[in-house]
């Protein structure tokens, strides 16, 4: 079976700082992979390379077996329609009401009539547990947890084949984080999508993934099924999942 997403030797540097140093990764269709790793290890850069927001210096990004690394402009449009993304800070458009945020991809990206897009948006908001009254509020009137839900509704609005989650639980209290985790797990199954998430929240990673990969030093140093993460036999992984300051991973304390 062709992998839904495949990265082959992806490298990216910013100036003299090497962020990705040959990332190899394959995600099977309808599975959920979580990339774990410390801050600044290139998790976001990995997602942005797949999305095409960043172009890798070397290596290939394959979606459904097709090399999309250097697709640009109008050639990229059909590909982008396969994607949905939940951003870390929500990245909701504060100039638009909630429902228009959710319907944005339908109206602007696909040219759907506003009335129909609004109905879909309200249905998607219901899926993430938000009532119709929220639809007409401005994003700035919502709490952090509600903004995440709206972001999730926006990510799934156009029934994407692949959904990206960037630190979905960052900035939420533990209970709301768990609510969001459940929502992510259920909506991904519901839509039948392939999911790629990045997080450093292990509770979240365990809950929403089938597979976990760990990014360290610009490479994937371990990858396996989620239930194997505690028996990885990899001391880097062990240190990370138990959150120990001592171990092979040295944090730069000085900036």
């Amino acid at each position: 079976m062709t992998a839904k997403i495949k990265l082959i030797g992806v490298k990216k540097r910013f100036g003299s700082k090497v962020v990705l140093d040959g990332v190899d990764l394959a995600i099977e269709p309808h599975t959920s992979l979580v990339i774990i790793g410390g801050s600044g290890t290139g998790k976001s850069v990995t997602i942005k390379s797949i999305l095409g927001i960043i172009t890798p210096d070397e290596g290939q990004v394959l979606i459904d077996g097709e090399d999309v690394t250097h697709l640009k402009g109008a050639d990229r449009d059909p590909l982008m329609k396969k994607f949905g993304m939940l951003f870390q800070g929500g990245a909701l458009f504060d100039s638009l009401p909630v429902w228009e945020n959710v319907a944005f991809g339908l109206i602007q990206g696909r040219g759907m009539a506003r009335g129909r897009a609004r109905d879909i948006a309200i249905a998607k908001l219901a899926k993430v547990g938000l009532g119709e009254d929220v639809a007409f509020l401005s994003p700035s009137e919502l709490s952090g947890g509600m903004q995440k839900r709206v972001g999730l509704a926006r990510a799934i609005a156009a029934d994407p084949e692949i959904i990206f989650f960037d630190e979905p639980t960052t900035g939420l209290d533990p209970i709301m984080a768990d609510v969001i985790n459940n929502l992510i797990a259920s909506t991904v199954k519901d839509v039948g999508a392939t999911a790629l998430s990045i997080t450093h929240d292990m509770a979240s990673a365990r809950k929403i993934s089938d597979h976990i990969a760990m990014l360290y030093g610009g490479k994937i140093i371990w990858q396996g099924p989620t239930d194997q993460i505690d028996n990885s036999g990899n001391e880097f992984v062990d240190q990370f999942i138990h959150g120990r300051a001592e171990g092979p991973i040295k944090m730069a304390v000085k900036a």
């Binding site: 942005k48 999305l51 095409g52 927001i53 449009d77 982008m80 329609k81 994607f83 949905g84 993304m85 951003f87 870390q88 800070g89 990245a91 909701l92 458009f93 504060d94 944005f104 991809g105 602007q108 990206g109 696909r110 926006r154 990206f164």
Partner: peptide, 20 residues
């Protein structure tokens, strides 16, 4: 919009930020 990733969000929603 840039620092809150709204411009990246436009891209993921099949909208060209320069045009929009």
């Amino acid at each position: 919009m840039r620092v809150t990733e709204q411009i990246d969000a436009l891209t993921t929603l099949s909208t060209n930020p320069v045009k929009y």
